[in-house]
């Protein structure tokens, strides 16, 4: 993975700036959501569920060579699209990179403002969960 987290975030902000209306932005998110595949079906269980969502979100992780990969799913296509963005930024990163990621793109795209007021989408819960995994891997590495 050559691009830095900030670079990918910048790309996303650019992509969103093309769209004038929220409807178009959400259409794009829905498209991303539909493309997000590969979540193991047998792991759609309570154990992997992210708490605090009006929709159901599942998240699993893997680790190789000190880098973490994420797979996620949701019954909401929009939430899936949001996860796809997070995964694009945070996938294949070291625990430190994930823990230090500021994720400014959420504010810069306007998504923050549009989504933060409602607990329904669980974006914050998802980010927290991803960082928790990173923290757990980091702790393991240090043993």
């Amino acid at each position: 993975m050559d691009k830095k987290i900030e670079e990918i975030e910048e790309e996303i902000v650019d992509e969103f700036s093309f769209f004038e209306s929220w409807q178009d932005k959400y259409e794009y998110i829905i498209e991303l959501g539909k493309k997000l595949k590969g979540y193991p079906e047998d792991k759609q269980t309570g154990e992997y569920k992210v708490k605090g969502c009006q929709s159901s979100v599942w998240l699993v992780t893997d680790e190789a060579d000190g880098r973490i990969t994420f797979k996620a799913d949701s019954d909401s296509t929009i939430v899936k699209g949001l996860i796809a963005l997070l995964i694009r930024v945070l996938n294949n990163r070291t625990p430190d990179e994930i823990l230090n990621a500021k994720l400014d793109f959420i504010g810069k795209t306007g998504l923050q403002q549009h989504l933060a007021q409602t607990r329904a989408n669980g974006l914050a819960a998802m980010i927290k969960q991803m960082k928790m995994y990173a923290l757990a891997y980091k702790a393991k590495q240090q043993i």
Partner: peptide, 21 residues
């Protein structure tokens, strides 16, 4: 096949306020 939350968000982008959940 569709999620109520998704429908609610898309309706909002057209100015339509409904409740979901």
């Amino acid at each position: 096949g569709l999620n109520a939350l998704d429908i609610g968000i898309m309706l909002d982008t057209n100015g339509v306020a409904v409740r979901t959940g």
